[in-house]
């Protein structure tokens, strides 16, 4: 491997690490298309992407654990419900394949879902942006969450008090059956679309179950450790994991994940949601462009799609770092004013 390629992988890993640590998603979504465009076979692109996601999620989960942002009980329940949902999602895909409709339905669902969640998250964040008082108190991860911070849908779901009731981080009380239902639904979409599902699970944990955003990110990452580990193991059995790709990517992302995870405790929660929404919108446009290219057999659309994905990732990770620096400087400015 040339030094330039090594530097490229480390730099690319750094970029993805920031997003992964900050949002709890964005790994295979970015790595796999990039490796495909670089000419790696699909098996290696997907398998190495999953192994990379596994390694990065281990690091990011440990970091979020240090900040008290992982709810293990919720994570285990989510894994159980998601696994069942993925199986059902896969069966639906197989059935649609028999009917010859799988490709088009999956593509349209993917774009609509990615774009829909993107618009919803951005709209909600902008609507409630002024109410956020900035930052998240990680020293009080188990403190009661303010009722006004719980989204309306989550409040409705929490109101169905079907026993047994579970108490989650932030003092959130939800029925076990509601958690399993949400986990099953996100798993079904994940299995149907053939994606890791971080972009579905993270907002679902916040908007449907009502856990605080940093806990949603940390718990989502905890689940990705298991899904990424199992997926990469299965691909590795078929020779789909290339360590010369995974190891340098991981060296960069480990640093990026530290920066991204630390940024969640500095940057305003409303800003996290805006960035997340914009990144999903960028992804939706990129997938739509790629699908149009496939339908009309326009090869250059694949490259345009990759540039759109990488561009939005670069823009959003840059914005995360910039917002963190700005928040630190304004914090320093206000504390020196108080001292005066």
């Amino acid at each position: 491997m040339s030094l330039a390629l090594l530097a490229l992988f480390v730099g690319f890993g750094l970029l993805i690490g920031v997003l992964f640590g900050f949002f709890g998603m964005g790994g295979s979504f970015l790595v796999t298309p990039a490796l495909l465009v670089m000419g790696y076979p699909s098996r290696v692109a997907v398998g190495s992407g999953l192994a990379f996601v596994f390694g990065t999620s281990v690091i990011a989960t440990l970091k979020h654990r240090d900040l008290g942002q992982v709810d293990y009980k919720l994570g285990v329940l989510m894994i159980a419900g998601t696994t069942a949902g993925i199986e059902v999602g896969k069966e639906i895909v197989l059935h649609l394949e028999e009917l010859g409709m799988a490709g088009s339905i999956i593509s349209v669902t993917y774009v609509v879902l990615l774009g829909g969640i993107g618009v919803f998250v951005t709209y909600e964040a902008l609507k409630g942006g002024d109410d956020d008082d900035g930052g998240v108190d990680h020293d009080a991860a188990d403190a009661e969450i303010d009722g006004d911070d719980i989204p309306d849908i989550a409040r409705t779901i929490q109101s169905y008090r079907v026993p047994p009731m579970m108490t989650l981080r932030g003092g959130v009380q939800v029925s076990l059956w509601m958690i399993l239902g949400v986990a099953f639904a996100t798993g079904l979409l994940s299995g149907f679309l053939g994606v890791g599902g971080g972009f579905i699970r993270m907002p679902a944990l916040f908007y449907l179950i009502g856990v605080p955003v940093p806990v949603a990110v940390g718990t989502d990452l905890f689940e990705i450790v298991f899904s990424g580990g199992l997926g990469s193991f299965l691909y590795a059995m078929d020779g789909g994991v290339d360590l010369s790709i995974v190891l340098p990517l991981l060296a960069g992302s480990a640093l990026g994940a530290r920066v991204g995870s630390a940024a969640t405790s500095i940057v305003d929660e409303g800003e996290i949601k805006v960035y997340f929404g914009l990144m999903l919108l960028g992804g939706a446009v990129a997938v739509a462009v790629r699908e149009i290219g496939n339908v009309y057999d326009i090869g250059v659309f694949d490259t345009v799609s990759l540039v759109l994905i990488l561009g939005s990732a670069l823009l959003v990770s840059g914005a995360v770092v910039y917002s963190s620096i700005t928040a630190l400087r304004s914090e320093a400015g206000s504390s020196s004013t108080i001292a005066d």
Binding site: A51, F52, F54, G55, T56, V58, I59, L62, K63, G229, S232, F233, L234, A236, M237, V241, L243, V246, L247, L250, A251, A254, L255, R258
Partner: peptide, 22 residues
């Protein structure tokens, strides 16, 4: 299966070393 487990083990080991090192 053992080869795959060894590969994933290498990735896990690198992740732990990087976590501790960084």
């Amino acid at each position: 299966a053992a080869q795959a487990a060894a590969l994933i083990g290498v990735v896990l080991l690198e992740a732990m070393v990087l976590y501790v090192g960084y």
